[in-house]
Design a protein around this nucleic acid. Sequence first.
DNA 1: GACGTATGTAACAAATATAGTTACAAATCC
DNA 2: GGATTTGTAACTATATTTGTTACATACGTC
Lengths: 142, 142
Amino acid sequence: MVNSRLTVAIHVLCLLACQRGDHLTSECIAGSVNTNPVVIRRLLATLRKAGLVRSQGGAAGGWELLRGPESITLLEVYKYVNPGAVFAMHNKTPNPRCLIGKNIQRGLVGYFMQAQAGLERELGKVTIAQVLGDVMAGAKAD
Amino acid sequence: MVNSRLTVAIHVLCLLACQRGDHLTSECIAGSVNTNPVVIRRLLATLRKAGLVRSQGGAAGGWELLRGPESITLLEVYKYVNPGAVFAMHNKTPNPRCLIGKNIQRGLVGYFMQAQAGLERELGKVTIAQVLGDVMAGAKAD
DNA sequence: GACGTATGTAACAAATATAGTTACAAATCC
DNA sequence: GGATTTGTAACTATATTTGTTACATACGTC
């Protein structure tokens, strides 16, 4: 990994959860994230496919959260914005005439899946509502 | 992530574990991994800093494993070849005049660390010896 | 000591992924 | 109809990763 998509997605979902009912424009959201509105639209387009948000064109348009923030786990968001495996296999297939080259991938894939499952297990324990709660608590403490 | 360094590192360590005592050249190793010898030397240079392997220049030189493969976990290798966090924060710092922008990172970092710990916990359960065992078992089954 | 074979490493090239930007059509509200 | 916003393509910029070339240095062998 090492991309910021999950971070930004959670950030945006917190914003939307904070304003349930209202519509937030991609420009307004981009202002909070400190990026370009198109980046936000791109990211939210994938969350829309997932049924998490809805968008509306035109004046008074914008983005809206469709589900309760307590029902959305970080794991769900992670899978949408970051499908695919955490660990990559070899770039070119290893030498099949070498015993280890021939069998290493088959051996590794299971362990890599287990590791990823460990990551996902933890992400599944946390909801957007929880993160938002933390953020608000932090805000109060200032 | 999504780089292949852990995969290649495990592959190479299995090769070296298979030939304890012997020296394997980077060219020979590269032949099994199907890449360039310099890529192998670069990777092994970091594992040498970690004390896992030793190298020797000159004729009859090459690489040698310094520790028992049953004492090396995938976690240890992972940390050497892939230091740093799995999840990245925002590229530019979010808007501090927005409540959420100001506090989101502080809120997230803990959850991200937990998730990474979940990943690492699983990697810590597996050793190079185990992977090598699987590979050999797979080889026999063919 | 000269020679052959390795590593060590810098420097560069290529491929890929990620993020940012511009531009404009389509949608929607007033 | 006009103003505002999304949808999306196209392009640029940047960073990361991997592959490659080149050559100095190390070391065993003759």
